[in-house]
């Protein structure tokens, strides 16, 4: 069986963001493989190590710099990678069609997608690509196994956890708790340079167009209460009760 795992090159959670000309402006080095996608890559590796998969294909959609995310996936242990290259900032629905096509093209029967993508902060991609493929989707997965031709998974729901089975092919979206992703070792990073990475130009129609990007202001909202201790205490109690609703 072939597993496809989607990886996104997103701003590093610790990067200091700036906006220029209505776009987020960041140095290439401030991007990293989306943490949510690391769970997907790790899940694929574990299935392969357990003898349940033959090949892992890492798929990415994005500008040329996304190659770094694919190289990370290859360094972690993916066998080959495909980059659908576009400079458009595609919304999740616009990504779903080409991702579905690429998944079919590589012959995968299991597609792993991050529970949400850090850049759009959206959880739509997994379900949207499942829709495009006509495959069932199990989202927010915290346990994943394959038994015969069935995927057996557990995922979080509002009031607890749900066990879930479906026949392959299936889309699974990940979340924290699914596994503890490994680090790419330096020998594997060096070997990853020699693994196949295919680039395909992508023309897609964004359904959402970014008009402007503004960073949230960081003004402090702290309030200093003045007066003697008794006045300050009663004012603090009033604010906690009436405004913060904490009491």
């Amino acid at each position: 069986m072939i597993i496809a795992t989607y990886v996104k090159h997103v701003p590093d959670a610790e990067a200091r963001l700036t906006a220029e000309g209505g776009r987020i402006a960041l140095d290439e080095n401030a991007y990293a493989l989306d943490g949510m996608d690391e769970y997907g890559v790790e899940a694929a590796l574990r299935l392969k190590e357990a003898g349940l998969a033959d090949e892992i294909v890492a798929l990415a959609i994005g500008p040329a710099r996304s190659e770094a995310a694919l190289r990370t996936a290859l360094a972690l242990g993916a066998d080959r990678a495909v980059l659908l290259e576009t400079d458009d900032d595609l919304d999740p629905l616009a990504q779903a069609e080409p991702l579905a096509e690429a998944t079919r093209a590589c012959g995968a029967e299991l597609l792993l997608v991050g529970g949400k993508q850090a850049d759009w902060d959206s959880a739509a991609l997994g379900p949207a690509v499942a829709e495009a493929l006509g495959w069932p989707v199990c989202d927010w997965t915290t346990e994943l196994g394959i038994e015969g031709r069935e995927v057996a998974a557990v995922h979080d729901v509002d009031d607890g956890r749900e066990a879930w089975r479906a026949s392959l092919p299936v889309v699974v979206t990940t979340q924290q708790g699914l596994n503890e992703p490994r680090y790419p070792t330096l020998p594997n990073i060096m070997k990853a340079k020699r693994k196949p990475l295919e680039r395909q130009p992508l023309t897609a129609n964004p359904r959402v167009v970014t008009l402007d990007a503004i960073l949230p202001s960081r003004a402090r909202r702290g309030v200093r209460l003045e007066g003697d201790a008794a006045t300050v205490a009663s004012e603090l109690a009033r604010r906690l009760r009436d405004e913060a609703k904490a009491l």
């Binding site: 080095n29 770094a68 190289r71 360094a75 680090y183 790419p184 330096l186 990073i189 060096m190």
Partner: peptide
Amino acid sequence: DLLVLQRAVRDF
């Protein structure tokens, strides 16, 4: 190539 290794080691 070295920047990639540096970053991996920094994270680790």
